[in-house]
Amino acid sequence: MSKIKGISFRKIVVYSLFGMAISAIINSCQSASEIEMAKYLSNGKDIYLARCQNCHGVNGEGLGELAPPLTDTVFLKDNKEKLACYIKNGVSEPMQIHGKTYQEKMPAFKDLHDIDIAQVMVYITNSFGNKQGMYTYEQVARDLQHCK
């Protein structure tokens, strides 16, 4: 009786370890798109801190009426195909953000490549209360062709 018990106990341990190993493998394997997204987010954050944060703030809160906040999700969504142009070429037209008008000039970031723009956009549109998913550098290239 005790021997049977012993065997079955051993079996339980072995099976459960095996099961845990399998589930660990499954859980650690993110899908390729998730990995890509994580890569964009972390690179985007570095670019944001180096190039955007001085005006737009570490939490996207903006700076008085000098620089708009990046927390207006509706604005970001409605103007998504213009965002790449804003970053690459700068902005001088007034913008309505959170119902307020901002008309200070935003400088152009000519030295940012499509991939940099895509990454910083993914970071901005998925931080500060925004959650708008992926945006690839191919889309940046397409959007940049339609800049005004």
Partner: peptide, 15 residues
């Protein structure tokens, strides 16, 4: 006023 590098940070902090 048209400085886009360190001035915004300085004045954010000075504020």
């Amino acid at each position: 006023t048209s400085c886009t590098t360190i001035c915004p940070v300085m004045h954010r902090n000075m504020k």
